[in-house]
Deep mutational scan, measured.
Amino acid sequence: QVALSRTQVCGILREELFQGDAFHQSDTHIFIIMGASGDLAKKKIYPTIWWLFRDGLLPENTFIVGYARSRLTVADIRKQSEPFFKATPEEKLKLEDFFARNSYVAGQYDDAASYQRLNSHMNALHLGSQANRLFYLALPPTVYEAVTKNIHESCMSQIGWNRIIVEKPFGRDLQSSDRLSNHISSLFREDQIYRIDHYLGKEMVQNLMVLRFANRIFGPIWNRDNIACVILTFKEPFGTEGRGGYFDEFGIIRDVMQNHLLQMLCLVAMEKPASTNSDDVRDEKVKVLKCISEVQANNVVLGQYVGNPDGEGEATKGYLDDPTVPRGSTTATFAAVVLYVENERWDGVPFILRCGKALNERKAEVRLQFHDVAGDIFHQQCKRNELVIRVQPNEAVYTKMMTKKPGMFFNPEESELDLTYGNRYKNVKLPDAYERLILDVFCGSQMHFVRSDELREAWRIFTPLLHQIELEKPKPIPYIYGSRGPTEADELMKRVGFQYEGTYKWVNPHKL
């Protein structure tokens, strides 16, 4: 086992960053958080920038500027975001240094004079007029057009580079997404736009490419001749908990499936790229999406959770019991969808996408189930092999396979070949997804960000279904809070070829 401390991990990262040409360590950078008073800024962006600063992973002359409508001070920003920093008493001095680099400007999102004030403020910072500028839009999409237009007109660096990070949702359907994309691309070049999907920053999602293309053993079996089906799962054990009003506007397909799960599907299904260059990788992902037809209604199961009468606390409440959810809402909190990649490698292999709230566990994984062994000599005792990439929690890679049961006879039983990170790298604290992705933006690497043509294809696949749901308002199937979801989803999976045995229990190697 390799035991690495946080300091050692960050030392390795620093070495990698400083050796590259793309990370300008000594240049002045300004990180501007648009929507600095909001939840995302408070819980994710400010803490992430602090962790990067604490670990010495930001360029040395980096300033952080918050911008929002609320009249706040840096002290206010500190008060609301610091509880999420997880700072230790030993880091007190470092924390003071961090907040000394912070400033805040209040202004409207659609007022040109406010942006001119913001620009004057940035120019007044040390070497601010020639600094590289990175704008993070932690804002609702309704203000994107006004904000990007004003940034472009008043706040661009004339000497350094300018980059803009856009948070999902990128529209509600193909038409609104196209409108937003066309607007942003009329102001910024594609190499300046970073559409963030934080799932692409997760260690195991990034590991998929290495697993596939750096190991000879997987190449020959990664196709329709050997793989019976692919299941991509995202499960949350909690409901909307008072935030249903926002969720109800989008629903589970827009929230998770059309982005996170579809991105994971691309990494499983794509061909080997010409290189690890950002556009070479994204070219292959677009090719996969172009091979997927629009979702067919007979390959869809929609569910909505109801309270568990035997549960406790939140578990007793259904989705419609959330006071922020519109009365009688038919918005799905669970969806199972089957897609097919219609190309030579994957023809006929079902890709089953499942996601839901208020389920029995927290889990995100990719599961490849292989065909049955031909010419069975073990009297149907063999179960199908599976390769599982567990994204969260407890990152893991393992192969479910058959071995001989101890004893006199040739009785096979299920076991696993474990390729888990935790076994080799004991207690290594890896940077989280937002840390990686923000560092990628500083480096100018777009590999783990969504390109406009990729986004367009993703919406093309799901828009007809979303429009049909909005028009017909089908009643989702009720499922109990804390269950596996509607049984109809299991029946759909069985119908397209997935075999669920229920006889195997994964042993978490992190707890051995």
Rank of each mutant, 00 (worst) to 15 (best):
D255P: 00
V256K: 08
M257V: 12
Q258H: 11
N259T: 15
L261D: 01
M264N: 05
M264W: 15
L267H: 13
V268S: 03
M270L: 08
E271F: 00
P273F: 01
A274G: 09
S275A: 06
T276A: 10
N277M: 05
N277T: 11
S278E: 05
S278V: 06
D279T: 10
R282S: 13
D283S: 11
E284V: 15
K285Q: 13
K287Q: 11
V288D: 01
L289I: 07
K290Y: 03
K290R: 12
I292Q: 02
I292A: 07
Q296A: 09
A297S: 10
N298Y: 11
N298M: 05
N299S: 12
V301N: 02
L302N: 01
Y305D: 02
V306M: 12
G307D: 05
G307I: 01
G307Q: 07
P309S: 07
P309A: 10
E312N: 12
T316I: 12
K317N: 05
G318W: 02
G318N: 07
Y319V: 01
Y319H: 03
L320P: 10
P326G: 10
P326H: 09
P326R: 09
R327N: 12
R327E: 07
R327H: 10
T330D: 09
F334T: 00
F334V: 02
A335P: 01
V337D: 04
V338R: 07
V341N: 00
V341M: 08
E342T: 08
N343A: 04
N343V: 02
E344V: 07
R345M: 13
V349K: 01
V349Y: 00
P350Q: 01
P350N: 01
P350H: 01
I352R: 02
R354C: 11
R354A: 08
C355H: 04
K357W: 11
E361Y: 06
E361G: 15
E361H: 12
K363P: 02
K363N: 14
A364M: 07
V366R: 01
V366Q: 02
R367M: 08
F370H: 01
H371E: 04
D372H: 05
D372G: 06
D372Y: 03
A374D: 12
G375D: 13
G375P: 15
I377Y: 15
H379N: 13
H379K: 10
Q380F: 10
K383M: 13
K383H: 14
R384W: 08
R384Q: 14
V388S: 09
I389W: 15
V391M: 15
P393Y: 01
N394L: 07
N394Q: 15
A396F: 15
V397L: 09
V397I: 12
T399F: 07
T399C: 05
M401I: 04
M402G: 11
M402N: 15
T403W: 13
K405D: 15
K405N: 15
P406G: 11
G407D: 11
F410H: 03
N411F: 03
N411W: 10
P412A: 09
E413F: 08
E414W: 15
L417F: 15
L417V: 15
D418T: 06
D418I: 05
L419T: 08
L419W: 09
Y421S: 14
Y421Q: 15
G422H: 10
N423L: 04
K426C: 14
N427T: 14
V428Y: 12
L430N: 15
L430S: 15
A433V: 06
A433D: 15
Y434N: 13
R436C: 14
L437C: 15
I438R: 00
L439D: 01
F442S: 00
C443T: 05
G444I: 01
S445P: 05
M447F: 08
H448D: 15
F449A: 03
R456K: 13
R456G: 09
A458S: 11
W459H: 12
T463H: 13
P464C: 05
P464T: 10
L466T: 11
H467I: 06
H467M: 12
Q468Y: 09
E470Q: 11
I477S: 15
P478K: 09
Y479F: 00
Y479G: 02
Y479P: 00
P486D: 01
P486V: 10
T487R: 07
T487M: 05
T487S: 12
A489Q: 09
D490H: 12
E491W: 07
E491M: 11
M493K: 13
K494E: 13
R495M: 11
R495I: 07
V496G: 09
V496M: 12
F498D: 15
Q499L: 07
Y500G: 13
E501I: 07
E501H: 11
E501G: 04
T503F: 14
T503K: 13
K505N: 11
V507K: 09
V507I: 07
V507L: 06
P509Y: 12
H510L: 11
H510M: 09
K511Q: 13
